[in-house]
Design a protein around this nucleic acid. Structure first.
Lengths: 129, 129
DNA sequence: TTGAATTGTATAGTGTACTTGTACAATATA
DNA sequence: TATATTGTACAAGTACACTATACAATTCAA
């Protein structure tokens, strides 16, 4: 599978963060596994309609999180991640807040609680551990 | 109750959006109800440590969403909102994506699925309808 | 009725973040 | 060993967030 992701250039979320988010999804769900190679920054950038430096920034984000190893010439490779380093409580709070705000915005937009729960389980599905 | 909210100035999420998020929470949960007055932008701004224009931007955001009515001299007042206007599919997708990304980041940080579900229910709790 | 105080609005300025352009360094490959 | 491939570094342009300041509409006390 050639890694097909897409981003929304009209979104207020910066492109490099969207790219990181979508790639993180493939990593968390196991569609990309240790040893797998990611496409070169220039190729993915062309596919998504952004500059390759924008993709490179996303790769660096994921490398910092421990998902990837980057090397010029060799490209980006998924590495064994082990136990995620314990996040700072401040960072933990932000993650929980992001979830809460997402739910609140959906409620405010009129989503039934049912459907929100469904969306949640979709997001949890396929996640190992 | 004097409306006590707090924001995180170190967060990458812009202050005006955090303020709107926290206020939306009080609105969705019914802690602020139609007819209630919000604090003047200058007062809330002082409380939060930002410029009053930043608070004003948050108020405008919520006014656009149909929660508030703004008038100089009178201040910001919660209005009856009725049925939320049907969001554009594009906007709907973004809401669902935000939820998905929040969950994925929590998983990536090592949160057990259990606790994520708990956080979700905390966010849903107290929500009418 | 009037004038001062209160409250949101408008607009310009400043700093920061995002994206791009371009040159470069390290690795792979023919 | 030369060339292509791949990520990196850094400067420039643009958009966004926040602030400063002046302003307009409303409220309220004298």
């Amino acid at each position: 599978m050639p890694l097909t992701i897409s981003i929304d250039l009209g979104s207020p979320v910066p492109a490099y963060r969207q790219i990181a988010d979508r790639l993180r999804e493939t990593l968390v769900t196991g569609h990309l596994r240790p040893g797998d190679a990611l496409p070169p920054v220039r190729q993915l950038a062309t596919d998504l309609g952004v500059h390759f430096n924008t993709v490179a920034e996303a790769y660096r984000t994921l490398a910092t999180e421990g998902w990837l190893m980057l090397r010029r010439g060799s490209g980006a490779v998924v590495v064994e991640r082990g136990v995620p380093p314990p996040a700072a409580p401040e960072q933990r709070d932000r993650l929980a807040l992001a979830l809460r705000d997402a739910v609140l915005k959906m409620r405010a937009a009129g989503w039934p609680a049912e459907e929100i729960a469904i969306e949640l389980h979709k997001a949890l599905k396929g996640t190992p551990s």
